[in-house]
Design a protein around this nucleic acid. Structure first.
Lengths: 240, 240
DNA sequence: CGGCCCCTTGAACTACATCAACGGGGGTGG
DNA sequence: CCACCCCCGTTGATGTAGTTCAAGGGGCCG
């Protein structure tokens, strides 16, 4: 069931018919493994297929000439990492596996076909793009106007909910195989500062983080600190 | 011709048929004036129409409890300020006119109809959403990993090209009715620092900015400073 | 004419970056 | 099987980009 997580995510947006579920199960024509640290897409690529993450974690990122890296999105199973490449053709950023991943390939022709013949499903794909945009906006707000601590807390809240949707949490615990350097590149902070912020979050008894396992030990207060409002994830089943 | 700028923008993405042009001219069912400083949409709203900017400038923004504001998008004529509200229903941010604006209302039913019967046009609408996302990512990169000067230069490059598309530039000159406070809220900087950065850009003979008029006096070098690559705006006519 | 934006400048402060160094663990090659 | 090494987390010391606070001046609108 390579499309299981994807389907689960779509079901958070709207009720989907059996026919649509079947279509989603069939869109992945091929799977492939990507090893940790490997780029599944590079800046400038013009893919003819979009990539769905089936297992593992991936990041979208840009590299600057001064050697700095900014991660612009974190992806978890069930995410399309480049659904937009169907529409805008040329990759303006790269995508890298930060754990070993299995990914599914969805031909752009298939997506084109869906947009021609299955408007409701096409809208759900567009919702996916729109929600990506909403997440981007939250990142902008956090980068521009939140402290490092609030920002970090906000990201953890976001990831917790997104992982919960695809069944990758157990209570308030989840696996988050992100190094502090990667976290820094996501938050726009230095590795050293990330380390100190995480210590503060622990000292405040908001989270624990040992190895790859994060536990949110005080979910209400973590949301409070982050000023987190889950609305933007559009996890509301409704006709679209 | 209320949809003129919108059509002009869509023509940058792909060739559009006469029928499609006609549809676009008809989607605006009603116009309304919004005065400077007025919210055209508020956080939490569930609009039943999407709003197209016909004349004037608008911003999407979020307010934090500490009173800080972060602008997440700047909108120029021809932009849909909330095309996504057709898909995600609930506004996760507000939209304010920063100059007197005239806006056009596009019923969600109309957009729904287009998605049912005019897949190519529907895809172009989705391109619009995807390009918004690409701009958001550029902002994230700039906020996270660029200096204030580079970031500001980057934003000016972006706005120059976007205004050029809709015919609102004259050579390297354009009207940009943004206060330094608004610019700061867009860049995630304080007003004071924006002022100093603009002085630096002027000292470097990259731009002039008097009143509402910006002139890019050294376009190649401004792009160079900003490390600006226009690719992300998808201004490439091609089948979609 | 008055008031309020908006831009500008100076001075002090601070959140975060940078530089440097160390220890532990896990994978790899000899 | 051991040794090495590199990655990753951690800590301390110092540096700095950008913030905050405060104040003044100019222009425009009511």
């Amino acid at each position: 069931m390579p499309a299981a997580a994807l389907i689960r995510k779509f079901e958070q947006f709207d009720r989907i018919s059996d026919r649509e579920r079947q279509l989603l199960e069939e869109i992945i024509v091929r799977q492939r493994a990507v090893s940790r640290g490997e780029d599944m897409l590079r800046e400038g690529d013009r893919p003819t297929e979009s990539t769905v993450l089936i297992t593992g974690f991936a990041v979208r990122y840009s590299l600057l000439r001064n050697g700095k890296r900014q991660i612009t999105a974190l992806h978890v199973p069930g995410d399309f990492v480049d659904l937009h490449s169907f529409l805008v053709k040329k990759m303006d950023h790269a995508v890298m596996a930060i754990t070993p991943c299995t990914v599914g390939m969805v031909p752009h022709e298939t997506l084109h076909g869906i947009s021609e013949s299955h408007p409701h499903l096409a809208r759900l794909l567009a919702v996916n793009i729109a929600v990506d945009g909403a997440i981007h906006r939250q990142w902008i707000v956090a980068m521009g106007r939140r402290s490092a601590l609030e920002h970090t807390a906000h990201l953890l809240c976001e990831l917790f909910l997104r992982l919960q949707v695809v069944g990758l949490t157990e209570g308030y615990s989840f696996k988050l195989p992100l190094t502090q350097a990667e976290l820094g590149d996501s938050l726009g902070l230095s590795t050293v500062h990330v380390n100190r912020v995480l210590q503060d979050l622990r000292k405040e008894n908001l989270i624990t983080w040992r190895g790859e396992t994060v536990v949110i030990t005080d979910w209400p207060r973590l949301q409070e600190v982050a000023e987190f409002d889950p609305t933007f994830l559009s996890l509301e089943v409704q006709p679209r």
